[in-house]
Design a protein around this nucleic acid. Structure first.
Length: 727
DNA sequence: ATCGTCATAATTTTT
DNA sequence: TTATGACGAT
C-alpha cells in the first residue's frame, strides 16, 4: 500500500496530525472536520509507514457504533482484517481485561454484567430489605449516588459521612450493594471501568504487560472521558507510550453523567510534550450555519478555542419561526417538511431535534396526520426489551445460580405458584444468611420450611433450571438459546397477551435465537460461549429502531443527534426554560453545557437549518409563556431570516405558494375554538380569498378569529359573520 | 393473580 | 398532560 493513499485524502491540518512524530498529540476536531478520518488514517500511518505492529495499537471509543465504524474503516483502508488490534469501547476493553485476569481482579470466572435496569432493581430490593422507606430513599437516587461515586473512583469504604445522616445512609446502601454484587459475581457498567483500573493499580505485573504491549493509544471523543477513563488511559500510557487523543471541548454534552470536560482541557499539561492540532475546516455545513455555530459557542468561557470554516458558500439564511404555540410549531415544521419532500428531498434528509423526549409527541401527531413516515430514536433497544431480558435471565441463571436479579425476574415467570409469601421467605433467608436467593431457595426446600404447595412449585423451578443446564451441556449456543426459550414456557405466557403485543414478543424471542446463532464467539477470550453471549447482550444493547423502514423523517433529542448529520435540521422548542433547560439555567457550568448542546444541534445541519420556538407551550399540562431562548439572540441577526417576525404583520412566506394543496390535517380540535376552526387551518373568505387561521379569542357569537390571508394580509374577523369556509 | 384506581413526578443516555 | 408505580379490589 502506498503512502499517498493514506495522505492524499487529507487536508493540511489533518495530514500534520496523522503524521505527527512527538510523543503525544491532542487533536481538537471541530464538528464535521473529519475526526474519524484522522483517527483511521493515523492508525494506517502507524502500521504502514512507521511499521508499528497492530498488536501494539489500542483504540478506544465511547459507543459500539463508533468502534464498529472505526474497525470497518481501518480494514477497508488497509485492506486487511485487523484482528490483533484492540479496538473497542472503554467498557468492552475493560471487560476483556477482566475476563483475562478475573482472578487478579478478585472476580468469579463467570461474572456477568449488570445493566442499569438490573442495577436499579437490585438497589430497589436492597432498600426494601434494609427496611427503608422507598419514598424517602428512591432507588434511582441511590443508583445515581453509587454510579457517580464509582465514576470518581470511590468505593463505599472511601466515602466519609462527615456526620451527615443522608450520606451515612447512602453509604450503607452502597455498601450493601457492593456485597450483593460481589456475592453474585455481578459487575455494573461503572464497576467494569473501576475494576479494570484497580486491577492495574493493584497488580503491577499485569499493568506492565499491557504497558509494554500498547505503545500507541488512541482515544476518540476525549471530551467525554470521565475521571476513571482518564486515569486508566494515563496509567496505561506510563511515560513511554504514545497518546493520540481526539475530541472537541465544544461538543462536551455529557457532564451530567460524569464526563469531565477538564480532561481535554488539562491534557497537554498532564502529558508534557503534547502537540496540539486544530481541525477547523468543515466539510459538512454551509457558511451561514458555521457562522451561527461559531458565534453561539463564542459565548462560552474557557474554551480551547476553535473556529469552523468552509470553502463552500454561505447557503441559505437560518430560518427562524415563532409559533403561537407548541402545537402550531409542530404543524409548521411538518408542513415545511412536506413541501420539501414534494419537491426533491427525501424524508430522511430531515431531522427534527428537540431538547427533551416529551416534545416528540406533537411532532409525531402532526406527521401522522400528514401521513409522513417517521422514526423516533431512543426507545428500548433489542436486548433491553422485557421478553428478551426474561429469556436472558434463564440463561444467566443456568450459567450462574447466584445471579439474584435473574432469579427474581423469572422465579415466577410464567406464573408457577411462587407467590409473594414464598419469595419473601427466600429473600429473608438470603439476607439473614448472606447467601444468594438460589441457595436460600434450595435450603428452604430441603428443610421443608415452606407450605407444601409453594415447596413443590419452588422445587419445580429449581429442577427446571438444573435440567435445562444439564440438557444444554455440550449444545452450541443457538441450540441452547432455542431450547431454553422453548422449555421455559415464555412463549405460552406471551401468547396470552392480548392484541399484537404477545405476537411481537414471541417474534422477538425468535429473533433472540437468531441472534444467538449469528453470534461470533471470540475463542481467545477465556469464557464459555454462553457467557460471552450474555456479556455481549449487556454490553451492546442492540439497535433501538423497531423497523427502520428506510425513508423516514428522523426525530431525536439533541443528545442522540451527536455524531450525525442531515441536509435539513429543525431545532425545535428553542425557548428559555426548555433549551436551555430550567434545571441547567442557574449554574454557569451547566448553562455552558446547554450552549454546547445547541452548538451540536446547529452543526448537524448540512444545508438548511430551521430554528423554531413557541410563544405558548404546555408543560406538564400547564400553559407556559416561554421567552425565546437566549441562544437565538446569540446568533448574529444577519444570518437569520425570520419567517414571521411579528404577530401583527405577518409576512406571506414565499414558501406558502408552494404549499401542496389541501392535505387535510387532523390536528386535535382546540377545546373552545370557535366554529370548530383550528389554528393553522386553511380557510377561504368570500372577499379576502384564502388564508390561515392564526389565532382566535372569545367564544360563541363573540368569537373573533385572526386569519392571515395570502393576498390581503392579516385580519381579525367575527367568526359568526365572516362566512369562512374550511378549504 | 390481574385489573383498575390513585398518587407522583416529569432533562439529557451510553455502556 | 402523561406515564409509571404502588396498592387495593375482583
Amino acid at each position: 500500500m502506498d503512502v499517498s493513499e493514506i495522505l492524499n485524502p487529507l487536508n493540511e491540518a489533518q495530514r500534520s496530525a496523522v503524521t505527527v512524530d512527538g510523543q503525544h498529540a491532542l487533536i481538537l476536531a471541530g464538528a464535521g472536520s473529519g475526526k474519524t478520518r484522522v483517527l483511521v488514517h493515523r492508525i494506517s500511518w502507524l502500521i504502514e509507514v512507521e511499521k508499528v505492529s497492530p498488536y501494539a495499537v489500542l483504540a478506544v471509543t465511547f459507543t459500539n457504533k463508533a468502534s464498529a465504524e472505526m474497525r470497518g474503516r481501518i480494514e477497508s483502508l488497509l485492506g486487511i482484517p485487523v484482528g490483533s488490534m484492540w479496538v473497542g469501547t472503554f467498557h468492552s476493553l475493560a471487560h476483556r481485561l477482566l475476563r483475562a485476569h478475573w482472578q487478579d481482579a478478585d472476580l468469579p470466572q463467570g461474572f456477568q454484567i449488570l445493566d442499569s435496569q438490573d442495577q436499579q432493581r437490585v438497589i430497589k430490593r436492597l432498600i426494601k430489605a434494609m427496611d427503608l422507606d422507598d419514598s424517602q430513599w428512591p432507588a434511582k437516587q441511590a443508583q445515581g449516588f453509587i454510579n457517580s461515586r464509582k465514576d470518581e473512583g470511590l468505593r463505599s469504604a472511601h466515602i466519609e459521612d462527615r456526620g451527615d445522616p443522608y450520606l451515612r445512609q447512602m453509604i450503607k446502601i452502597y455498601q450493601g450493594y457492593e456485597e450483593i454484587c460481589q456475592r453474585g459475581g455481578l459487575i455494573d457498567f461503572a464497576e467494569l471501568l473501576l475494576r479494570a483500573l484497580e486491577l492495574w493499580r493493584n497488580k503491577p505485573d499485569v499493568l506492565n504487560h499491557y504497558r509494554s504491549r500498547f505503545s500507541h493509544i488512541l482515544v476518540d471523543e476525549f471530551q467525554d472521558t470521565n475521571s476513571i477513563q482518564y486515569a486508566w488511559v494515563q496509567l496505561l500510557a506510563g511515560d513511554q507510550n504514545k497518546l493520540f487523543v481526539v475530541g472537541d471541548d465544544d461538543q462536551s454534552i455529557y457532564g451530567w453523567r460524569g464526563a469531565k470536560i477538564e480532561n481535554i482541557q488539562r491534557f497537554s499539561k498532564d502529558f508534557s510534550g503534547t502537540q496540539t492540532f486544530r481541525l477547523e475546516q468543515n466539510y459538512r455545513s454551509t457558511g451561514n450555519i458555521l457562522k451561527a455555530a461559531n458565534a453561539l459557542i463564542a459565548n462560552n468561557t474557557s474554551r480551547l478555542g476553535k473556529e469552523l470554516w468552509t470553502d463552500g458558500n454561505n447557503g441559505e439564511p437560518i430560518q427562524l419561526y415563532r409559533a403561537f404555540n407548541d402545537f402550531e410549531e409542530a404543524r409548521y415544521v411538518v408542513e415545511q417538511i412536506s413541501i420539501y419532500t414534494e419537491l426533491d428531498m427525501r424524508r430522511d434528509d430531515h431531522a427534527i431535534l428537540y431538547r427533551s423526549n416529551a416534545q416528540s409527541r406533537l411532532f409525531e401527531e402532526a406527521l401522522l396526520a400528514r401521513g409522513i413516515s417517521y422514526r423516533v430514536y431512543g426507545g428500548l433497544r433489542f436486548y433491553e426489551r422485557a421478553e428478551i431480558k426474561d429469556a436472558l435471565a434463564y440463561l444467566r441463571l443456568m450459567s450462574n445460580r447466584h445471579d439474584d436479579p435473574s432469579f427474581e425476574r423469572v422465579v415466577n415467570l410464567p406464573t408457577r405458584g411462587i407467590g409473594e409469601r414464598s419469595l419473601q421467605a427466600i429473600r429473608d433467608h438470603s439476607r439473614d444468611y448472606r447467601v444468594s436467593l438460589w441457595d436460600a431457595a434450595c435450603t428452604l426446600c430441603q428443610q421443608q420450611l415452606l407450605a407444601s404447595r409453594a415447596m413443590s412449585a419452588l422445587s419445580g423451578f429449581i429442577s427446571l433450571i438444573e435440567k435445562l443446564a444439564g440438557d444444554c451441556d455440550g449444545l452450541d449456543l443457538g441450540d441452547t438459546v432455542e431450547l431454553v426459550i422453548e422449555h421455559v414456557g415464555l412463549i405460552e405466557h406471551f401468547k396470552k397477551d392480548k392484541g399484537e403485543r404477545g405476537q411481537a414478543r414471541i417474534e422477538n424471542l425468535d429473533e433472540l435465537g437468531t441472534a444467538a446463532r449469528q453470534f461470533q464467539y471470540d475463542e481467545s477470550i477465556d469464557m464459555s460461549q454462553l457467557d460471552a453471549f450474555l456479556s455481549h447482550a449487556s454490553l451492546e444493547s442492540g439497535e433501538s429502531g423497531d423497523s427502520q423502514s428506510d425513508d423516514c423523517v428522523q426525530l431525536m433529542t439533541l443528545h442522540s443527534a451527536k455524531g450525525l448529520e442531515f441536509p435539513a435540521v429543525f431545532l425545535c422548542g428553542v425557548e428559555e426554560g426548555l433549551f436551555p433547560h430550567k434545571m441547567s439555567i442557574e449554574e454557569p457550568g451547566r448553562l455552558e453545557e446547554e450552549r454546547r448542546l445547541c452548538y451540536v444541534g446547529i452543526t448537524r445541519a448540512r444545508q438548511r437549518l430551521y430554528i423554531t420556538h413557541a410563544e405558548t407551550r404546555r408543560i406538564h399540562g400547564a400553559e407556559t409563556f416561554p421567552a425565546p431562548s437566549r441562544f437565538i439572540n446569540e446568533i448574529p441577526e444577519e444570518l437569520i431570516k425570520e419567517i414571521r417576525p411579528k404577530q401583527r404583520a405577518p409576512q406571506v412566506s414565499t414558501l406558502r405558494h408552494l404549499r401542496p394543496q389541501t392535505a387535510r390535517r387532523r390536528s386535535a380540535p382546540l377545546d373552545d375554538a370557535p366554529l370548530g376552526l383550528r389554528l393553522g387551518q386553511q380557510v377561504s373568505h368570500p372577499k379576502f380569498g384564502e388564508g390561515t387561521v392564526m389565532s382566535y379569542e372569545g367564544q360563541g357569537k363573540q368569537a373573533r378569529v385572526q386569519v392571515n390571508f395570502n393576498a390581503a394580509g392579516s385580519k381579525w374577523l367575527v367568526a359568526a359573520y365572516a362566512n369562512l369556509q374550511a378549504v
